[in-house]
Amino acid sequence: MLLIRCPWCSEREQTEFSYHGEAHIARPATPMDQTDEQWGDYLFFRSNTRGPHRERWLHAAGCRRWFNLLRDTATGQILAVYRPDEPAPAATAG
């Protein structure tokens, strides 16, 4: 079970958090102008990265705030923690 450093609450057990997939998936500004294929890409297609991966987490049983992790999906190592309003760190951070 991972120990995750919530940017607002410090280090807590993984059971307090929930995982919400890849971060930085931009929502199209005008969805109705999107083709089915474009919209499908937005909805369903993810990078499925092996290695450093920017992903969204929610401190669900805590402060209930979203934040992002840069986490190596192969090793589980957490390379960086950052708030949604902070710039995404480089993939080699940590």
Binding site: P28, P31, M32, Q34, D36, W39, G40, L43
Partner: peptide, 17 residues
């Protein structure tokens, strides 16, 4: 309605084939 004037979450998906 399919119009583009008002968007809401999930709307675009309702018009996928």
């Amino acid at each position: 309605p399919a119009g583009t004037t008002r968007d809401f979450v999930g709307k675009r998906s309702l018009f996928r084939a």
